[in-house]
């Protein structure tokens, strides 16, 4: 199986990075479409299990941002 595009799972903190991502939208900044956001209440919520599981599901990258 080869994939043209990559898929990156982003765990974004609702109060910080998720807000920044919203603002980036409001400002119409452009960035690649590889990222799939999972909103979490805080990066403290992200357990290593999630990261491993994401890779196991075939994610090419994981980004955790507070």
């Amino acid at each position: 199986m080869t994939k043209e595009k990559r898929k990156i799972v982003a765990f974004l903190c609702n109060w910080c990075s998720y807000g920044a991502a919203d603002l980036a939208g409001v400002s119409r900044m452009q960035y690649p479409a590889d990222i799939r956001v999972i909103r979490v209440p805080c990066t403290g919520r992200v357990s290593p299990k999630f990261i491993l599981s994401a890779f196991r599901q075939g994610a090419d990258g994981v980004w955790v941002s507070g």
Binding site: A24, G25, M29, Q30, A33, V37
Partner: peptide, 14 residues
């Protein structure tokens, strides 16, 4: 789920 701020607005050309 956010398909505007984090999608249509930021991937306008794709």
């Amino acid at each position: 789920t956010n398909i505007r701020n984090q999608n249509s607005w930021v991937h306008k050309n794709n």
